[in-house]
Design a protein around this nucleic acid. Sequence first.
DNA 1: TCGGGCCATGTTACAGTGTATCAGCCGCAC
DNA 2: GTGCGGCTGATACACTGTAACATGGCCCGA
Lengths: 176, 176
Amino acid sequence: MRAYAQQDHGHDHHHDGADGRHGCGRCAESATERAERLCQERGLQFTPLRRDVLAVVAAEGRPLGAYDIAERMSGQGRRVAAVSVYRALDFLTEQGLVHRISSRNAFVSCEHDHGDGASLVFLICRSCGGIDEMTAPAVESALDATLAQAGFTPTSRILEVEGECGSCRERRRREG
Amino acid sequence: MRAYAQQDHGHDHHHDGADGRHGCGRCAESATERAERLCQERGLQFTPLRRDVLAVVAAEGRPLGAYDIAERMSGQGRRVAAVSVYRALDFLTEQGLVHRISSRNAFVSCEHDHGDGASLVFLICRSCGGIDEMTAPAVESALDATLAQAGFTPTSRILEVEGECGSCRERRRREG
DNA sequence: TCGGGCCATGTTACAGTGTATCAGCCGCAC
DNA sequence: GTGCGGCTGATACACTGTAACATGGCCCGA
Ligand SMILES: [Zn+2]
Ligand SMILES: [Zn+2]
Ligand SMILES: [Zn+2]
Ligand SMILES: [Zn+2]
């Protein structure tokens, strides 16, 4: 996993899982810190609820259902209803901080800078449940050409691939 | 719409909607007739329930939810539960007679002959709700190359595009 | 012929996913 | 202050999908 193909500043983003931080100096910024900065730049409110939802999703590193998120956020006298999570997810999705995975009815955090139009490919591992996203310009151009030929004007694209990620394949090979 | 790119016998399949028949002589066969033939060839049961579910979906020509199908099949003393529809849809999907549209939680009939491995692109029109499927070899090869480079072994692919189909675009252009 | 396995279906209950609606709160502009 | 818009809480509900169990038909071996 972790094979993002289009970098903002020229190196792979090896997100290191639960800590929610990148491994390099330039972007030594947690997912929530980055989100707060972006919302400030856009004049939007990065409320505690939205921050916590994003933190939970970012810490998980794999697709998480809205009810799972609510459950993780509840406890110790706090009870977060799923409907609140959905509203926060709507916001985060619109801001590009979270992606929805249609085939899983789940959400995954995103720390990349890709515009609205970018067509992303999601790689979902059946073995470890991990997910990775990548931009694939060759796929995108081939798809756009095909759509144009069919007279179809696209507004959004969903590309989700299930299979086995490199790590799991390697591990399975070693362990037989 | 109706821009299927890989024909079984060399011409576009302009499915003519509710009658469920193709427009040419060679394949003057309804969706249910074809399904019955295929099931017979494969030694499987094409039961009345499965036939009716397929007929409903084929007649609609656009993605239909399981509960919608159940509703259309009920009435006049007959009551079809959604769970029965789901079981029939499982069968039809496995046999390639129906496709599931992840982004809509809906199902659409298919009268094409594409193997299991084919990665299909679904074109869903936001305006008329119609759907079309096509094989796009260029997209498929570009995607496979990208996946191979990422060390990912795919088992299934989902490609669903939302937008405006050619007919709707043309109509909108004419009517302003 | 009888029994048993297999398959398809019916039926009920339930889990999971997502939305509608109303109410309260808060910050801000007028 | 008063209103207005955005955020959240809370309840109810609609929609989607599955588990579990029972029934009936069919084939097949005992
Ligand atoms: Zn992203
Ligand atoms: Zn894996
Ligand atoms: Zn098809
Ligand atoms: Zn259309």
